[in-house]
Write a protein that binds this DNA or RNA. Structure first.
Lengths: 257, 257
DNA sequence: ATGTATAATATGTATGACACAATAATTGAA
DNA sequence: TTCAATTATTGTGTCATACATATTATACAT
């Protein structure tokens, strides 16, 4: 392995320095969420730099999700949500995704989600039960051919359980999984166009367990649900591999007759 | 609860549009990592906008980690790493951290890491074994009073196991956990200044299991290791709570004599 | 071929200007 | 006096221009 050195960028740009400065202020709670920052002009004066530098710094901060720029109104410290915090993940996975992520994702789901479900059973509020019931109703009313909606509801169900666990780190941990699922589902549907979803029944049993605060049942039912989904995913992988293989054969025969 | 709607910012700024445009090109692989983008001037011409708009767009893209701006040289499409992808997480957790995250993090670690360790035992390469051995040696040589280094090595060990699992989603999933651990460790050390770490022994047993490809043992040993760490963490929580309580009492008596 | 000096290039920063929407201030009506 | 409509002000969005300075390429000398 040949190591490589990165170029040394000695003098940081002004805008970066401004970014770091403001970022530090936010981290140190000198600037609190919702608070309005000084105007561009004032910032220019404070840092003794041009508006160019200040504006570029503010754009970077907004791209990072630390501030919100309200057009022609002002710059405000943003109350970062977990969703924004992991927004970069979506882009990353969009770029790096490949088909064997399907198995990897399901392995992880099998490991984590039953536990999360148990915690949900232990800590769920009545409000979350209500939300989950609503979700189930919507799924019941969803026409079987409307895959789009069904996927959304399925995802929502699992995310609501993550929230119901009352462990604030769980949604962060599961974010990569949830980011990848739409793509995985799309792949499943393109290769098994007329697969039938049994999500509704599984969700019903899971919700019942959570409702009754039956931690063991919640764990078990979620385990069963994910195992079933994983099985489906495995079938898809097989089909994709077979198709790829067939394609390969076809190519070989045409290339070297 | 009165809901509130956020203002709709219809006319997106020019720089935003440019960002979306270039972002799309990167996502569609029209621009590949390492590739140099046109110069600012050329981009101005292509989009028919001022240099201001282009520059602000480029700054946002660089803040998002999609491009790297080399000073006075050019703008290059960045090959996003998973670390960059979740860089926003660090900021978020810095802002949101509170003491009960300790328990939440350990709950999650108990749920996930044994599984990850099992996968590592199944899929580990000889290279990863070597790396893990090196880590263990360094930890053995680490003086017990050097908490800083020990923490780093401990974290490294767990991250290396995550990598050894050969599941590319695992490091992403565990990122929030690893982001929080330094802070948690710092808290432990401030409240139990002379606690003694038994990490070395546990790590030894874990590595042995992985080396022998003994999946069950790997699972079990990691489970034991994390359970032990969680126990310590619980003690710390107790101590903190007691201190807080004592402080509370003190305040009460001084305020209302 | 290697190293140095020069020129061309691209980004970094500053300044000034103006459009336009959002807010604040003012005015007018009930 | 209170509320609504109008006007004024403010602050951001965008453009144009200029120059500084570091990087890269070119040419030249050794």
């Amino acid at each position: 392995m040949s190591i490589s050195f990165n170029r040394i960028q000695r003098p940081v740009t002004l805008s970066q320095e401004i970014v770091e400065n403001i970022e530090r202020s936010i981290l140190e709670r000198k600037l609190v969420p919702g608070q309005k920052l000084p105007t561009e002009q004032e910032l220019c004066a404070m840092f003794s730099v041009s508006r160019t530098a200040v504006r570029e710094a503010l754009r970077m901060l907004s791209a990072k999700g630390l501030v919100t720029i309200k057009k022609r109104s002002g710059i405000f410290v943003n109350d970062m949500t977990s969703t924004e915090a992991v927004s970069g993940l979506g882009l990353y996975l969009e770029l790096k995704f490949e088909k064997d992520y399907i198995l990897h994702v399901f392995n992880i789901r099998q490991a984590i989600e039953p536990h999360v479900c148990r915690w949900a059973a232990a800590n769920r509020s009545t409000a979350s039960i209500w939300e989950l019931e609503k979700n189930l109703l919507k799924m019941k009313d969803c026409p079987p051919e409307d895959r789009e909606t069904e996927s959304l509801l399925d995802q929502e169900f699992h995310q609501m359980i993550a929230a119901a666990s009352k462990n604030p780190v769980v949604p962060l941990v599961l974010q990569p999984v949830f980011s990848l699922m739409p793509r995985i589902r799309a792949m499943v549907y393109t290769h098994i166009p007329n697969c039938v979803s049994a999500a509704l029944e599984y969700h019903r049993r899971i919700l019942d367990a959570i409702k009754q605060r039956d931690e063991e049942a919640a764990f078990r039912e979620m385990q069963i649900h994910i195992a079933n989904a994983a099985e489906q995913a495995n079938e898809v992988i097989d089909i994709i591999d077979k198709k790829a293989h067939a394609q390969d054969e076809a190519n070989r025969t045409t290339v070297s007759p």
